[in-house]
Nucleic acid binder design. Sequence first.
DNA 1: AAATGTCGCAACCGCTCTTAC
DNA 2: AGTAAGAGCGGTTGCGACATT
Length: 298
Amino acid sequence: MGCKSSEKPKPKHKKGLWSPEEDQRLRNYVLKHGHPCWSSVPINAGLQRNGKSCRLRWINYLRPGLKRGTFTMQEEETILTLHRMLGNKWSQIALHLPGRTDNEIKNYWHSHLKKKVAKLEEMEAHTKPEYTTTSTSENMDSSPSSNNPTILIPSFESLHQMGKSSTDTDHSISQVFGLPQEGHKSSLPKLLFAEWLSLEDVNGGGFASSGEQVVIRDGFNQQNSSFVQDSFMHGYLLNDGGFGGEFHDGINNDYIDEMLSGPRFKFEDQISGIGFADSVSGDDLCSDLNMKNHVMYI
DNA sequence: AAATGTCGCAACCGCTCTTAC
DNA sequence: AGTAAGAGCGGTTGCGACATT
């Protein structure tokens, strides 16, 4: 687009890994001239690559601001949440993870998260056979849940049950989520908390307006249901954005029992009171997300 | 120490979408 | 309006590193 056909690069393009010299050439050229037309970049930069390859290399590895290294728990749960909502829309998911590329996220999904999700679902199936979810790995690949009116998530009670029945270490929630164990802070509930978020601005702002809701399913009766929210928020806020030390090796049952015994405070207080946005630590897992409290109890 | 298996990541491929002509 | 070319996206592959036998 915007490129003269006469600028079409010659064939005979080099393939494979990029050398440091090639990287340097491409970086220097793009930083100096930009990339109005990728097909002309390799020619002008003296590279024997095609424009497509140059573009990919720049986007995924050379452009400024890229964050390399291990994904944080917040990034991971953001991916999980967005993937549940969007399916394999890696580029859209990447929009909410500054410094991460779609390719990186895609690779991370296939190499890490996919297995964790599958394992979790398997665990859920064994623990609570009646539990249903729209987010099986199969249907996530083929039909993003953005097409579904309702997003089902595990209930806190089901996790409670899983926690109590997690004598089998292979099914430990910490392991499923790859959480640190033995005295390390765990962030398991953050995943669930993140799933309360609704993305108004993804897919052109379709979520809230399309009536999609996050559902806490089969977990609590009506009188407890508001507390579920509160408890998550409570734990989230008290632990600097995570559920911290009270959760070791999965879920601390005493803590859950305590939470299940009754409400501690109002959800609304947490939003308006101590300043939710200020309380969510670090990069703010939902910095790009519009907080929405679309929770339905059934 | 060598052979084999597994995993993770970088990069390519093919398709669709967008835009200029 | 039709066509061609470029850009962008998601799926897949190939290879190197590491682990296991």
